[in-house]
Design a protein around this nucleic acid. Structure first.
Lengths: 159, 159
DNA sequence: CGGTGTAGTTCGCCGTACGAATTATCCGTT
DNA sequence: AACGGATAATTCGTACGGCGAACTACACCG
């Protein structure tokens, strides 16, 4: 009756529970730098390039009104800046400040390390397979690029 | 220069971005039933059995003080109940109410469906491989059982 | 029986997230 | 050029989420 051992794990529980782990790792990395996970995510998105509020809203899946506050708070912390768009007076471009770029890089690297460590128990080939399969899921569902690719040969055991 | 096509995706971005997808699916399934994602997660945990506040705190990775409020709100909605522990007067067992069990099941099924759909582009063998690899990640890191296994042969295309 | 630890709650604070309403601008039509 | 419908953001009010510190009440060990 009482089964304490975990049998084979289905794909859905596996996704949910690994999501739980990644969320935790992400939150820890943020926390350690005085960031909230949301602010960390915002910084990671902006590492690619500046975006408008509407674009961020779409990428992050948040109401625009939610974004106003998030950017407000992050701006108050000196990490991002609202730049006015030359082509559209209404619009705004949210960009990293110098300090924000530094902190973003630190956060990004730490989050990478922590998340990479989650898969530390897998061999190189297994990691590659996992990346490929999850990559398919990501592209199939057009997941926004909320986390950029690491620079060349940084990731991990890249032989 | 401008590369719009996504090349091979590294394991870390793949994990982060699939996490993003799962979070979204989970939130959508909750939202549709007037639940917050946190309340949905609480219900899913309690589908296994009642737990004490301390246990829930550990499983969900939340401060105990955070849990008090979450259970308060969920209790106010009539979905869970605080039962007193016979062996320890201080302690409390949080259990699903009848209505909570029904809603939990609905939410659970819907979340399963949505998350399963994320991997709809993979073939049966690929799904199995993905489940096995993520399962390793989950067990290696001792991820708490925040989402139970589906009942026999419910998951999906199970031949 | 007294002291130490544990289970939960309370409190104050701030961040997160939403929808509805608002402001300002853009742009296609006429 | 003027109108009117989209669009970009913000504001406002509300509710939830999450934490640490301080607290209450009980358990357990000696």
């Amino acid at each position: 009756m009482a089964k304490h051992v975990e049998g084979p794990i289905g794909i859905v529980p596996a996704l949910v529970r690994s999501t739980f782990l990644v969320n935790g790792a992400y939150a820890d990395a943020a926390r350690e730098r005085g960031l909230t996970p949301q602010q960390g995510q915002l910084l990671c998105v902006l590492m690619q390039q500046p975006f408008g509020m509407g674009e961020l809203s779409a990428m992050l899946g948040l109401a625009k009104s939610s974004l106003t506050g998030l950017v407000d708070r992050t701006e108050r912390n000196g990490l991002v800046r609202r730049e006015s768009d030359a082509r559209d007076t209404r619009a705004v471009r949210v960009a990293l400040t110098d300090g924000g770029a530094v902190l973003a890089e630190e956060f990004y690297m730490d989050a990478c390390r922590r998340i990479d460590d989650l898969a530390a128990g897998l061999g190189a080939a297994e990691r590659e397979t996992l990346a490929a399969l999850l990559g398919r899921v990501v592209t199939d569902n057009e997941a926004p690029v909320v986390f950029r690719e690491p620079a060349e040969g940084v990731a991990a055991s890249e032989g």
